[in-house]
Design a protein around this nucleic acid. Sequence first.
DNA 1: GTCGAACCGTACCGTACGGTACGCTGCAAT
DNA 2: ATTGCAGCGTACCGTACGGTACGGTTCGAC
Lengths: 211, 211
Amino acid sequence: MDGSLGLERTERQGEVLDAALALLVEGRERFTMESVARRASCSKETLYKWFDDRDGLLTAVVQWQASKVRPGAYDAANLTASALRASLEDFAVTWLGVVSGPPSIALNRAAAAHAGGGKAELGQILLSEGRFAIGARVKPLLEAAREAGLLSFDDSETAFRTLFGLVARDVQIRLLLGDRPAIDIAREAAKAADQFLTLYATPKPQKGPHP
Amino acid sequence: MDGSLGLERTERQGEVLDAALALLVEGRERFTMESVARRASCSKETLYKWFDDRDGLLTAVVQWQASKVRPGAYDAANLTASALRASLEDFAVTWLGVVSGPPSIALNRAAAAHAGGGKAELGQILLSEGRFAIGARVKPLLEAAREAGLLSFDDSETAFRTLFGLVARDVQIRLLLGDRPAIDIAREAAKAADQFLTLYATPKPQKGPHP
DNA sequence: GTCGAACCGTACCGTACGGTACGCTGCAAT
DNA sequence: ATTGCAGCGTACCGTACGGTACGGTTCGAC
């Protein structure tokens, strides 16, 4: 999956979506068709033509931003204990940086509100481009580390969810609820990696079961 | 704090708030002054008289429900390793049960949406009656366990946040975004308690893990 | 130059909703 | 019985917003 879902946008459409996103992120003004049109210097009619309706516009904005912050892959070759630790820490730093950023906060709030009415579409997009995409990138790393004898676990999904919890803690929910927790990302990331390794690193540094 | 904040409600007011809450939780109908009045069989004028405006009503609803689910205290006397484990597990079960319940989901969504406009009041209420109230109950347990030589940590806040992360993992955010993760609460709670003890239990002086 | 498509700006429509006003009923106190 | 008040139901007002219509402008194709 490349995230485009066959929805290529023209340059102008990208500008409009950026403007809409900025509006949503700032939060100074309500996200209304008119405010988007004004901000993007386009007509409402164009918005309706391109994105069908308000929901379509919102969906396109979420899609647009989510596809911009695809997580990077982690090198699973030549894994050493220190390289693994570095990758875990890097994942944690990146993730904390993204979710504590205003775009993530605004989009997640919008999606949560959207899910309040029956519609779960925005949430699904954010989850599949965020949480699940990340899982898909990190799990191979974990499995490679297991292969290399560095980690031991039964289920990589379970292991990843533990890592996720150790990194996230209460940060995301507090941010979504309007709290502004002071977090030292580097420090928290290091601690999370540390704790994860404490839980999952194989007891003794040995070579794996497959020489 | 007893959670009342000097806001005693008459029985009738409680009924109205229950009706409003039910409306919010079901999500079938928009949360509007008229729909609340209809559902509660009261007049809009009464709503405005009692709760000032829509925000006041929403705040009262959040206050009302949040104060109903105060976390219980954990017995910190005669702590043994198994009693500690049981308390941790109990906390995890309770917390997962609450946050995966429709009222919590609906209220958190409403608060997140509310925080989208500058207003963080609902979020603050939920955090102080939820996350922080729980922390205030659990931290004494952790400190007592440290006193009893069962745990070792520097900062109980940090330790609690780790416990929080191990219990919550990705559950709450997925629920808020409309996903319906299938979780086995008892199992996840046990695992979280297990992992927390692995991270924070003081190494046993002599007893080997394999008798 | 002419044509047509795309798009901008704005005016407009219908509705939903927050908030107010008012008349009516039931009830408790005197 | 009279009075006063709390509260129900409903009608009403103003506005904000989703969605549509339309005239004017730019620009590329021919």
